Simulated assay, not measured.
Amino acid sequence: MTNENPNGSPLDEEIIDPPADEVPSPEVEALIAERDEYRDRFMRALADAENARKRAEKDRRDAEQYGGSRLARDLLPVHDALTRALEAASEDQRAAAALIEGVELTLRELNNVFAKHGIKVITPAPGEKFDPQQHEAMFEAPVPGTVAGSIIQVMDNGFMLHDRLLRPAKVGVSSTPAS
């Protein structure tokens, strides 16, 4: 009879011990002990190999999903610059529609590429609660009419790559309003 591991390869033949009423010689006892030691070492090596396979598979998945983190981080300032360019355009400048339209199309395309690769923009709004997992407080100021710990100004958007933070959103936070 052959025992098999989950991968289907034989572990070893059925182990046959001498009958219980027969006293084995010291040589047989030594061979049984050696056999048991080798079997134990084999089973440990098999478990180590399985653990290494699982670790390698996880590393491969992580590399596939998060391998572009550096490139993504390098593209974030491009997104910021395009966003600021659109925000800075006055109504008079918007009359030069071709330039503004070009910047809008470029930013839209960059957002499409981000979405295709699992990059999400974190866009907090004033009044939202500060979340240290997604936001970085750049300053804190007492602002009447606000709740302590709420966002009062957004300097830069944040970005997530799948479930990992690439860059926190840079925000100003309200402290306890001065009395």
Rank of each mutant, 00 (worst) to 15 (best):
D12E: 09
I15G: 07
I16D: 00
D17I: 08
A20K: 06
A20N: 01
P24H: 03
P26F: 08
E34S: 06
E37M: 13
R41Y: 10
F42W: 08
M43A: 14
M43D: 09
A45D: 10
A47N: 11
A47E: 15
D48A: 15
D48N: 14
A49R: 13
N51L: 11
N51Q: 15
A52H: 10
K54S: 14
K54G: 09
A56V: 05
A56Y: 10
K58W: 06
K58H: 11
K58L: 14
K58Q: 14
D59A: 15
R60I: 03
R60P: 06
R60N: 13
R61M: 10
G68K: 00
P77V: 15
H79N: 08
L82I: 01
T83I: 06
L86C: 04
E87W: 07
A89S: 15
A89D: 10
A89K: 09
S90R: 09
E91M: 02
A95T: 08
A96T: 06
A96R: 07
A98I: 01
G102K: 01
V103Q: 03
E104R: 04
T106R: 08
E109Y: 05
L110I: 15
N112T: 14
K116N: 06
K116I: 03
H117V: 08
G118V: 14
T123Q: 15
E128Y: 00
K129W: 01
F130M: 01
F130L: 02
D131P: 04
P132A: 13
Q133C: 03
Q134M: 06
A137D: 05
A137K: 08
